[in-house]
């Protein structure tokens, strides 16, 4: 399968994978994004012991593993993580950027969050792992599968283990500046002729409470919940438009009367357009769920 194509046209993912020149790497270096995730991981550390194990679903370019690795140095702990993503490009980049250390080891596994029980069978401890992280990913899982990904995460946890989730794609994410976020995208789309808004947005943006409910339905207890504003500088807005997942999500929000532009073309226009935007804020929602005894 070539990088940058749908994985076997699988229904388990609904956007185009990353590839050379169209990836998440530039964006995920941005401070506000890392900070949001670092704060959540610091919170998660409160529930973890001196040696812990974790599974990261949608590991992308390895951010969760990098944060956990850093925390093992800072908190003098040890951790092993199994990082799962369907995207071979992202996994290769992650592996390169996240070498193991005395305290930290990561395993990189190509696959879907929906399949972790089978994928990790025999690899993770039998009594379960201490943490499952799903950072910036749950909204990318096809909506009908989101519940099953969270439930699968809950099943591979040991009692008192945690599921750590965040998302900047809920229906409150851009509530107070929706137009500012939408305008540059509209301008870019119009470069390709007449466009109308698609009936359904490119990405389903649920209410945060729906994700809370999914965790509770999986038998987990919500122990931490926060909504945090994250302000992105203009360069970060440019860089997110290098990410194929985002670009495709935006492209699917429009109907192009003269035919869809390619992802590369659309990405270039989006970058130019967001490059003229002022810094913009999104609301990130964070959850930590715990498995009862």
């Amino acid at each position: 399968m070539a990088v940058g194509e749908r994985v076997e046209q699988s229904p388990k993912i609904y956007h185009t994978l990353q590839k050379e020149g169209m990836n998440y790497t530039a964006f995920s270096r941005h401070y506000p994004y890392r900070r949001e995730n670092a704060e959540l991981m610091l919170e998660a550390m409160l529930y973890l012991s001196a040696r812990f194990t974790g599974v990261d679903i949608g590991s992308g370019n390895g951010l969760a593993a990098q944060l956990v690795k850093g925390m093992t140095e800072i908190f003098l702990r040890e951790a092993v993580m199994w990082c799962v993503d369907p995207d071979p490009y992202a996994l290769a980049q992650a592996e390169k950027d996240t070498p193991s250390s005395d305290r930290f080891k990561a395993h990189w596994i190509k696959g879907f969050g929906q399949d972790i029980e089978v994928l990790l069978n025999g690899q993770i401890p039998e009594d379960g792992v201490d943490m499952v992280s799903i950072l910036g990913t749950i909204h990318e899982v096809p909506p009908d599968d989101q519940t099953s990904v969270i439930s699968a995460g809950a099943r591979i946890l040991r009692p008192r283990g945690i599921v750590v989730v965040n998302s900047e794609f809920t229906d409150i994410a851009t509530a107070d500046n929706e137009t500012l976020w939408a305008m540059p995208a509209g301008r870019a789309a119009m470069k390709f002729g007449r466009v109308t808004k698609a009936e359904k947005p490119g990405l389903l943006q649920r209410a945060p409470a729906e994700y809370t409910q999914m965790g509770e339905n999986a038998g987990l207890v919500l122990v931490y919940y926060q909504v945090v504003p994250v302000t992105y500088p203009t360069q970060a807005l440019v860089d997110i438009n290098q990410y194929s997942g985002w670009v495709e999500g935006v492209r699917n929000s429009f109907i192009f009367e003269n035919g869809q532009p390619s992802l590369e073309e659309f990405s270039r226009e989006l970058q130019l357009s967001y490059g003229r935007s002022k810094p913009l804020t999104r609301q990130s929602v964070r959850w930590i769920f715990q498995k009862p005894n």
Binding site: R34, R35, A38, E39, M41, L42, G70, M71, E73, I74, F75
Partner: peptide, 13 residues
């Protein structure tokens, strides 16, 4: 001290 290191993405060393 630890949080400052974590936010700066630095190791103690």
């Amino acid at each position: 001290m630890r949080n400052a290191l974590a936010y700066a993405y630095l190791n103690p060393s």
